[in-house]
């Protein structure tokens, strides 16, 4: 299982790099905004929390960088990300913990829907090359170029301001108590529908175009012609021979562009004031809540890393060559 070992090492390195970047950013920035803020918070932060923030933001100019780095890791491993300034004195880890499920629910589900649907449509268009289906390409190209958040603005204008079908912000009816009741779950789906739709609409075009091009490329491989020569039914050739191979690069592209897609869709939370990580990050940036910013970034990176690992497993399951030892 050299494949698995290699990948594991890669993910460990990436996780380490993400943490290190997070450690370095505040230390490399010119100026010292955190000190100023700490000054304003004087007396309200207990000494323990103050200590964490000092470590997180490198205010301990007395200690060596190495010592700071070790302390930093120590904090992270204890799950201490400092205190949020905005939601003082709530710990960042707690805020992040609350926001993450919403993001995974919204962005995760929408991204999977978008990928699946887009791949299917891409197969259909690529297989019918040179027919009316090609007329869909310009529209798709346009949608792939539209900024995510702008599509969100348009969706709000049309579906909630003008038509009044969906709420324009929030993630559930504030009058309800969050429990596993039908009413509450229904409300979550109702509130999540428009943001999810927008995420799907804005990211699907990329998957469609990618899969279409891969399918066109793969369709001229010899083994597809062999499948035709064997007299297999058209669907079998399309699915089992052409699409089955075209999806391999599509999956590895999925893994690679996940960071990009997630970044874009997080903005959607900001547009819809949806209480996930993206919206939290937005609030943190606007209120200059540095601990919260750092915490959000770390969590987003680790989540994308996790999704990457899953995509890797899927790839290995799909491609026998990747599983090969050595």
């Amino acid at each position: 299982m050299r494949f698995a070992v290699r990948r594991t090492i890669f993910y460990l390195i990436t996780a380490w790099a993400a943490v290190t970047i997070n450690f370095l950013i505040p230390r490399l920035m010119p100026g010292d905004p955190v000190t100023a803020l700490m000054g304003r918070m004087q007396g309200r932060i207990d000494s323990n929390a103050e200590e964490s923030i000092r470590v997180l933001f490198g205010l301990d100019t007395g200690a060596s960088v190495w010592q700071q780095y070790v302390d930093y890791w120590g904090l992270l491993l204890r799950g201490d990300l400092g205190l949020s300034f905005t939601f003082f004195p709530t710990p960042v880890s707690e805020i992040v913990q609350q926001a993450l499920p919403w993001t995974i629910g919204l962005v995760g589900v929408a991204t999977i829907i978008s990928f699946t649907l887009g791949t299917g449509i891409g197969v259909a268009i690529g297989w019918r090359r040179g027919t009316w289906a090609d007329a869909l390409l310009p529209i798709t190209t346009f949608f792939s170029a539209v900024p995510y958040f702008w599509l969100g603005l348009i969706a709000i204008t049309v579906f909630s301001v003008t038509l009044g079908w969906f709420p324009s912000s929030g993630s559930y009816d504030r009058g309800l108590v969050p429990t596993w009741s039908w009413e509450f779950v229904g409300s979550v789906i109702y509130y999540g529908f428009l943001p999810a739709l927008t995420v799907v609409l804005s990211s699907i075009a990329g998957w469609i175009l990618g899969m279409r091009n891969m399918l066109v490329t793969v369709s001229s491989e010899d083994y597809v012609t062999v499948a035709h020569a064997k007299g297999l039914p058209e669907r079998r050739v399309m699915v089992g021979y052409a699409a089955r191979n075209a999806i391999l690069p599509q999956v590895s592209n999925f893994a690679l562009s996940l960071g990009f897609v997630v970044g874009g869709t997080l903005i959607m939370e900001m547009v819809f004031s949806y209480q996930g990580i993206g919206y939290t990050l937005f609030q943190a940036v606007n209120t200059q809540d540095y601990p919260l910013m750092q915490g959000c970034f770390l969590v987003i990176t680790l989540a994308v890393l996790g999704a990457n690992i899953i995509a890797d497993f899927v790839y290995a399951a799909l491609d026998p060559r990747a599983r090969q030892e050595g």
Binding site: M29, P33, L256, L258, G259, F260, Q288, M293, I300, T301
Partner: peptide, 18 residues
Amino acid sequence: NVFLVIPQLPLIIIIAGQ
């Protein structure tokens, strides 16, 4: 590869934000 996996937009946001 590390830079590919790290989501760029949030990274840019926190750098630009600081």
